[in-house]
């Protein structure tokens, strides 16, 4: 088929012209200007008016036609001015889970000039199922204006939503000026957490006892140890509110790992395809972190020692996200 070949050539050409750059200033070389559909219709109206002027030999009709034609030409300059010099920059975007909508914050800096009705959106991506978002903002001359763009992150790994399209039809809507900008946007996409049972590999430090059935870690079967005093850093979800209301102070529900030993989330201990395994591990990373429980994570070629806390969780999620992916 010719179309994909052409579009990929087109993409390659664009990529050679538009280098990733953050922040990006819109310069003359990267702004394209064409009449819009409404502009073409306006041109047709002008032609009809010119024909009337010619056939009625009417100077005022000529004058009005020429005035409007001149306004059309002048509006090209205004549209261009509205875009040129605009500075776009990307802020860091928070990671998301696969299948969620990733949100990217772009800052528009007027750079000393007020900008009206600037539309930022993704460069058209026909394969994208979710509706590509766009955002229209006015930028005052001294302000940094945020625009949030979102795009569905389908696969785990490092998600690059690609080039942005910045467009403006201001002031008359008859002319559009646009630019493709590559802000090198990227965000981390964690595996989609999928609930399920996890065969528990109890870390004994010695060889496994043969024949012993592996305990299974799953929701509901973990042991409720009892209550202990609240320590800073404990999850609020596990506060024992009833006790608090009885005036017994802040108590935290404590769950014990089976056997009182550290849990190792081990990729190799799971069966099945890679992605479901990662999804399951992701679920348990979140779950165990929620319970303030120490755990270790083992992936082929990667081992994260047992620890607890948000930093540990993020580190684990990151490893899961980038497993097998050239980052």
């Amino acid at each position: 088929m010719a179309t994909p070949g052409r579009s990929s050539r087109w993409d390659r050409w664009l990529a050679s012209r538009i280098r990733p750059e953050n922040p990006t200033r819109l310069t003359q070389q990267r702004i394209y200007i064409l009449p819009t559909l409404e502009g073409v219709a306006f041109g047709c109206v002008l032609v009809v008016m010119l024909l009337a002027a010619i056939n009625y030999q009417n100077s005022l009709a000529y004058g009005l036609t020429f005035l409007l034609a001149a306004v059309l030409f002048i509006s090209v300059l205004h549209t261009y001015r509205n875009m040129v010099g605009l500075v776009l920059s990307a802020a860091n975007s928070p990671p998301v889970f696969a299948g969620d909508v990733a949100s990217f914050r772009i800052h528009l800096d007027g750079a000393g000039r007020a900008r009206r009705a600037i539309v930022t959106g993704w460069q058209a991506a026909p394969t994208q199922t979710a509706p590509a978002s766009s955002h229209t903002v006015d930028v005052e001359h001294d302000a940094l204006v945020p625009a949030d763009l979102s795009r569905e992150a389908l696969t785990r790994g490092r998600f690059r939503p690609g080039r942005l399209r910045v467009e403006s039809r201001f002031p008359l809507g008859l002319i559009k000026a646009w630019s493709w900008v590559d802000l090198d946007l990227a965000t981390l996409v964690y595996p989609r957490p999928v609930e399920g049972d996890l065969p528990l590999d109890v870390h004994t430090g010695s060889e496994k006892e043969a024949g012993a059935q592996s305990p299974v870690l799953s929701m509901g079967v973990d042991d409720f140890q009892g209550l202990r005093r609240y320590q800073p850093g404990d999850s609020k979800r596990r506060l024992h509110w009833k006790a608090y209301s009885r005036g017994q102070g802040l108590l935290v529900k404590d769950f014990a790992a089976a056997g009182g030993q550290d849990v190792i989330l081990d990729f190799d201990a799971l069966a099945g395809a890679i992605e479901p395994r990662l999804s399951l591990l992701c679920y348990w990373v979140l779950e165990l972190s929620g319970r303030q429980q120490t755990f270790a994570l083992r992936l082929p070629g990667e081992y994260i020692a047992a620890d607890v806390g948000d930093a540990h969780r993020d580190r684990c999620l990151r490893v899961l996200a980038l497993h097998g992916v050239q980052a």
């Binding site: 024909l51 009337a52 010619i54 056939n55 009625y56 030999q57 100077s59 000529y62 004058g63 020429f66 005035l67 034609a69 001149a70 306004v71 030409f73 002048i74 509006s75 205004h78 002031p171 008359l172």
Partner: peptide
């Protein structure tokens, strides 16, 4: 926009070639 369009309009008005009526209306 209208004020800025005036110079261009004058150029067009003065020099755009005038034709006779193309058909009768």
């Amino acid at each position: 926009l209208m004020l800025q369009a005036v110079p261009l309009m004058l150029v067009l008005f003065l020099f755009f070639p005038r034709l006779g009526p193309l058909w009768s209306l």
